[in-house]
Protein backbone atom coordinates (compact mmCIF):
# COMPACT_ATOMS: atom_id res chain seq x y z
CA UNK A 1 0.00 0.00 0.00
CA UNK A 2 2.93 2.33 0.66
CA UNK A 3 3.77 2.16 -3.05
CA UNK A 4 0.28 3.38 -3.94
CA UNK A 5 0.60 6.27 -1.49
CA UNK A 6 3.88 7.28 -3.13
CA UNK A 7 2.30 7.07 -6.57
CA UNK A 8 -0.65 9.19 -5.41
CA UNK A 9 1.75 11.73 -3.90
CA UNK A 10 3.75 12.02 -7.12
CA UNK A 11 0.60 12.34 -9.24
CA UNK A 12 -0.77 14.97 -6.86
CA UNK A 13 2.40 17.05 -7.14
CA UNK A 14 2.31 16.64 -10.92
CA UNK A 15 -1.35 17.65 -10.94
CA UNK A 16 -0.67 20.92 -9.10
CA UNK A 17 1.88 21.95 -11.72
CA UNK A 18 -0.36 20.60 -14.48
CA UNK A 19 -3.25 22.84 -13.40
CA UNK A 20 -0.89 25.84 -13.45
CA UNK A 21 0.32 24.91 -16.95
CA UNK A 22 -3.24 24.38 -18.21
CA UNK A 23 -4.30 27.85 -17.05
CA UNK A 24 -1.45 29.36 -19.10
CA UNK A 25 -2.27 27.30 -22.20
CA UNK A 26 -5.94 28.28 -22.01
CA UNK A 27 -4.86 31.96 -21.89
CA UNK A 28 -2.61 31.52 -24.97
CA UNK A 29 0.47 32.21 -22.85
CA UNK A 30 3.87 30.55 -23.01
CA UNK A 31 4.47 27.93 -20.35
CA UNK A 32 7.65 28.07 -18.22
CA UNK A 33 9.60 25.10 -19.51
CA UNK A 34 11.03 24.25 -16.10
CA UNK A 35 7.46 23.78 -14.85
CA UNK A 36 6.62 21.59 -17.87
CA UNK A 37 9.69 19.39 -17.34
CA UNK A 38 9.22 19.13 -13.56
CA UNK A 39 5.58 18.17 -14.22
CA UNK A 40 6.95 15.33 -16.35
CA UNK A 41 9.59 14.43 -13.76
CA UNK A 42 6.82 13.82 -11.19
CA UNK A 43 4.34 11.93 -13.34
CA UNK A 44 6.67 9.73 -15.42
CA UNK A 45 8.10 7.88 -12.36
CA UNK A 46 4.55 7.64 -11.00
CA UNK A 47 3.36 5.92 -14.20
CA UNK A 48 6.35 3.55 -14.14
CA UNK A 49 5.71 2.71 -10.49
CA UNK A 50 2.03 2.11 -11.29
CA UNK A 51 2.98 -0.30 -14.09
CA UNK A 52 5.30 -2.18 -11.71
CA UNK A 53 2.57 -2.29 -9.05
CA UNK A 54 0.00 -3.66 -11.51
CA UNK A 55 2.36 -6.41 -12.74
CA UNK A 56 2.95 -7.57 -9.16
CA UNK A 57 -0.47 -7.21 -7.55
CA UNK A 58 -4.00 -8.49 -8.01
CA UNK A 59 -6.42 -6.80 -7.99
CA UNK A 60 -4.86 -3.69 -9.47
CA UNK A 61 -5.98 -0.29 -10.83
CA UNK A 62 -5.69 -1.15 -14.52
CA UNK A 63 -8.33 1.44 -15.54
CA UNK A 64 -6.27 4.09 -13.83
CA UNK A 65 -3.13 3.05 -15.74
CA UNK A 66 -4.93 3.10 -19.09
CA UNK A 67 -6.13 6.64 -18.43
CA UNK A 68 -2.67 7.77 -17.29
CA UNK A 69 -1.10 6.31 -20.43
CA UNK A 70 -3.63 8.21 -22.57
CA UNK A 71 -2.74 11.33 -20.59
CA UNK A 72 0.99 10.64 -21.02
CA UNK A 73 0.65 10.26 -24.80
CA UNK A 74 -1.24 13.53 -24.89
CA UNK A 75 1.48 15.13 -22.78
CA UNK A 76 4.17 13.97 -25.18
CA UNK A 77 2.30 15.50 -28.12
CA UNK A 78 1.83 18.73 -26.15
CA UNK A 79 5.50 19.15 -25.22
CA UNK A 80 6.63 18.19 -28.74
CA UNK A 81 4.31 20.73 -30.34
CA UNK A 82 5.28 23.37 -27.80
CA UNK A 83 9.05 22.98 -28.24
CA UNK A 84 8.88 22.82 -32.01
CA UNK A 85 6.88 26.03 -32.24
CA UNK A 86 3.59 24.47 -33.30
CA UNK A 87 0.33 25.72 -31.85
CA UNK A 88 -0.89 23.76 -28.85
CA UNK A 89 -4.50 22.65 -29.35
CA UNK A 90 -6.39 23.75 -26.24
CA UNK A 91 -8.75 20.79 -26.55
CA UNK A 92 -5.79 18.42 -26.35
CA UNK A 93 -4.50 20.13 -23.23
CA UNK A 94 -7.96 19.79 -21.66
CA UNK A 95 -8.30 16.12 -22.69
CA UNK A 96 -4.79 15.45 -21.34
CA UNK A 97 -5.83 16.97 -18.02
CA UNK A 98 -9.20 15.25 -17.88
CA UNK A 99 -7.67 11.83 -18.62
CA UNK A 100 -5.17 12.38 -15.82
CA UNK A 101 -7.86 13.55 -13.38
CA UNK A 102 -10.01 10.52 -14.22
CA UNK A 103 -7.01 8.21 -13.78
CA UNK A 104 -6.23 9.87 -10.48
CA UNK A 105 -9.84 9.44 -9.33
CA UNK A 106 -9.82 5.72 -10.23
CA UNK A 107 -6.55 5.36 -8.33
CA UNK A 108 -7.97 7.07 -5.23
CA UNK A 109 -11.07 4.90 -5.31
CA UNK A 110 -8.97 1.77 -5.72
CA UNK A 111 -6.60 2.74 -2.91
CA UNK A 112 -9.06 4.01 -0.35
CA UNK A 113 -12.13 2.06 -1.47
CA UNK A 114 -10.58 -1.28 -0.49
Amino acid sequence: MNTLYTIIGLFALGAIIGIYLLTLVLQDKETPKAAAFVHGLFVVPAVIMLIVYITKNTPSPVESLVLFIIAALGGLVLIYRDLTGKKIPKWLAVVHGLAAVAGFAFLLVFTFGH
Binding site: Y20, A34, F37
Partner: peptide, 12 residues
Protein backbone atom coordinates in the same frame (compact mmCIF):
# COMPACT_ATOMS: atom_id res chain seq x y z
CA UNK B 1 20.10 23.07 -23.37
CA UNK B 2 18.11 21.13 -20.80
CA UNK B 3 19.67 23.21 -18.02
CA UNK B 4 18.61 26.36 -19.90
CA UNK B 5 15.04 25.07 -19.98
CA UNK B 6 15.19 24.38 -16.25
CA UNK B 7 16.12 28.02 -15.65
CA UNK B 8 12.76 28.99 -17.15
CA UNK B 9 10.89 28.87 -13.86
CA UNK B 10 7.93 31.08 -12.97
CA UNK B 11 9.02 34.45 -11.60
CA UNK B 12 12.70 33.90 -12.50
Amino acid sequence: NFVQYLKDTPWN
